[in-house]
Design a protein around this nucleic acid. Sequence first.
RNA 1: GAGGGCAUAGCUCAGUCGGUAGAGCAACAGUUUGUGGCACUGUGGGUCGUGGGUUCGAGCCCCAUUGUUCUCCCCA
Length: 516
Amino acid sequence: MAIKSILNLNPPSGFRDFNADTIHKRNFIINIIKNQFELCGFEPLETPALEYTDILTGKYGPEGDKLIFRVLDSGNPFEHLKPESWQDISTPESLLSLKNRLAEKSLRYDLTIPLARYVAHNINKLVLPFKRYQIQPVWRGDSPQKGRYREFMQCDADIIGSASLHHDAELVLLYANVFEILKIPVTIKINHRGFLEYFLNYCKTQSPNVEAHFNLTKFCNVIDKADKIGWQKVSQELVALGFDSSMVARLEAFMNLPQYHFLQNIIISIDTLKQFFGDETDSSHLEPTDNHSYHNIVNQSFYTDFSELHNYFNLSGLSAKKPFEYCKIVWDFGLARGLNYYSGIVMEVVVDNEVCKTKYDTQIKMGSIGGGGRYDNLTAMFGVPNLNGIGISFGLDRIYDVMDALKLFENIPTKHQSKVIFFNLGEVGFNKSFELVHVLRKLGYPCELFPTQQKLDKQFKYAESLEYHFACFIGENEISKNEMIIKNLRTREQQIISLETQANFVEAFKHFINKN
RNA sequence: GAGGGCAUAGCUCAGUCGGUAGAGCAACAGUUUGUGGCACUGUGGGUCGUGGGUUCGAGCCCCAUUGUUCUCCCCA
């Protein structure tokens, strides 16, 4: 008889249950990431699921604000509201404002803002630079689809209170090490937002029709689409926004500079970059009128960042031939990224489908599986100015999906390798088995007893489905001879073990386990 | 926020032209054996997501609704 509930037994859309098998695989990934974090000197931090709504809003852009899960105040959330304030929900802004007032607390949207809040709160106790890693779920009210969930795990490592560029290089290498171990072919893209900001400011001086409030974030959003819709449409859009068409052409030439591939022949070097910006000397009409000197790029801070980072990569041996099998590290002048708070170096990790094709004969359609960047002065919004920060994030759920698609979990031992089950052959043997189970558990072997005396094929099937490696038999025959049978469930090899003394039993048991 | 697909047994799905429902697997029971995965026999289980409409008649056509999934947007 089918028992049908009128309730929907699915978890809410975009939320998931995880079974044992999935959790073992997720832990496998998490342990590798955590290990790399600790090798680099990061210490763990956990923050609560809920933050005050005011802490979160306004940090992720207007789109982000809409996606924050708000938690309705307990008690009567309407109590403190004047009636007129909740009657006006005619505009999206007033509706959002009302929601914020009904929900004092919200689920965290990422791990970076809670970190900034934590640092600002504890600034007097912390030793700087503060290096912490954090592996916890975050929640976004996005519409779920492939590779996008409403509850997902982020694995972040951040350094607060140090402007040294070596961290930026270190984090890129950390990315590379993790994906190298996981055997996921990736491209780690790097850029400096300064280049884009510089271009934007310069374009604006040359294009009086561009609206003053057209900022870097909006600029990034427009040019970020170049990959998908092509440069022709992007340049049309920019011209429509008031940009001078010669500047747009110039920007296109810049963005289309070949990607700087750190692992192969150097296609574009610092010199060619200098050349790119320097060769405008003939075009007097481009001569800027303000201190955003077009030719003065080598004096810009982002330019020194760029060359310094370049040095660290050389020191780390990245320019050597083939330091990584699965990772490419490239400089991509077109990389923009969406979040508001990034100010310097930005990074993004995407699956490298060319290598997937050659190594795994398959291709993966998936958004970025990691991202990060430098966000100078992030804690200023919480009243603690002049702190530099940089961080990266691994998207665990997407990494999992990619590994699953590439069949990378096969041949990976995610479970204990010597699980033991005692079959049930009747009460006398059961009692002896119960005794031995506790001996083995003390020695660190996971064991279980089959609870009822069922047909052996049932017991075998149970053991098989739960991936037990060894089965022990103690029935009346064995009890009478004071012995037990142990069987390797994979090879089907079996052996008789004497139960005369516990020491002998343990010795023989270990011997059998170890040789299998 | 915009736009598609799908919804039939526990699972994966068939179901032709509109004529009251099928398979495989799984489950359960049995046969043989104190050492399995095989085989054989049998059994149970479906208001075809929900609500309307068209029709003599709807799993099938139409509308609505809910769930689910995917794409765009944006992101991890």
